[in-house]
Design a binder for these strands. Sequence first.
DNA 1: GTCTATATAATGATAGAC
DNA 2: GTCTATCATTATATAGAC
Lengths: 235, 235
Amino acid sequence: MRSIASDDLTTRARIRDAAIVLFGRDGFAATSVRAVATAAGVSPALVLHHFGSKDELRAACDEFIVDAVMGHNDELGIVADSAATMQKWLADVDQFRPQLDYLARMLTDDGPGADRLFDLLVESTTQMIRGQVAAGIMRETPDLEVTALYLTTYGIVPVILGRQIGRRMGADGMTVDVIRRSTLPILDLYTHGLYTDDRFLVAAREALDRTSGPSSGKGDNDPHQDPDPPAAPAS
Amino acid sequence: MRSIASDDLTTRARIRDAAIVLFGRDGFAATSVRAVATAAGVSPALVLHHFGSKDELRAACDEFIVDAVMGHNDELGIVADSAATMQKWLADVDQFRPQLDYLARMLTDDGPGADRLFDLLVESTTQMIRGQVAAGIMRETPDLEVTALYLTTYGIVPVILGRQIGRRMGADGMTVDVIRRSTLPILDLYTHGLYTDDRFLVAAREALDRTSGPSSGKGDNDPHQDPDPPAAPAS
DNA sequence: GTCTATATAATGATAGAC
DNA sequence: GTCTATCATTATATAGAC
């Protein structure tokens, strides 16, 4: 992915890269074909000449980013797995901000390619966990599929909420310093957990067993927080 | 918050609720004033008569949702804290989907009120952690501010990525069943952590100590994943 | 491939009647 | 408060010259 901000590119590629920047920064609906054309230094008509329509332009951007996340379009012909690519991008946020912003938009705006991208990330995380568990580095989890799913989303969080995270740390978005300060607390959570004992886990297990019979559907008859972990921060 | 989908409301409130639904579902830029008007059963002109402009309409929606998250606009005059409200909404996803969708849009589209909302959630989570630690239920964390920050984002994840999470579990978005199946794996993570020992934590501590002198800024001289936790799913 | 010019539709917003 | 009618602007998209 040497493309963005480079000049030795086909016009088509320059338009696509400009679109990725603008779609990622402002969102798809808020970005006009004219704005993309201006950013790419061409006429609006040429944008549509190359891509047919605004929607097809978006589809092309989606596909390009998904390919990039899979490790294609790379300097070398290296094919990495998607989670690794995301780690690499996050390790160099300044250089890969357009890609990261676009990733976030893909996932929150549910464009075409969003599902495929998310599946790739989950799959990659699943394989990672499998490997770590086999190596004795990670514990067995009660539900690999779900654990991998949420672990994936937690890994995506800095991409999607980077502005807020940075702001809370007095920085301008996801800077290197923000990432540095985030490392230990997150690793601490993943190493020691949060709770001093397993009372909530046990309580939740029992509560789930109790309601597992007459479940499925909605209309729960206990709207108040009875069996829930009192103020658990998740789910 | 008895408003949405109710009829005994002022026209202004009906318009605002319709806007919340549409902005939350389709996004702000992709929702036209006309669409809001139609959904509310009024003319486009009336929408602007009541709110002045589309932007001011959005601001009104933002404010209303922030108030709701703080526990105002409630059936009773109860003032809850924001994290608790979010838990309550998630416990009854079907009823509160518009609010949850709007929350997600606020945070990902960075509308007015987004920062205030996020600050409220973080503050609420911080207080929760403080209480749990004081009660001996939660461990001390290495950096309360950062831990609370990420814990907040992890709690928001089901709101923002609910469609993907549901889809991966064969459901249509964040249903009650999805939440039920999510409980144990997440609680397990928060109880036992993920790793079998603290090798990554120790390694990260050392790596951070090593680079803490010539840090601050970008231009890291080690682009490859040397000191990083090999395939850690976060940060 | 790239442009200018333009068709056509939709948008946010206003004016003024009731 | 609520509407109809309309304006000015902007949007996506097309036609056709070069």
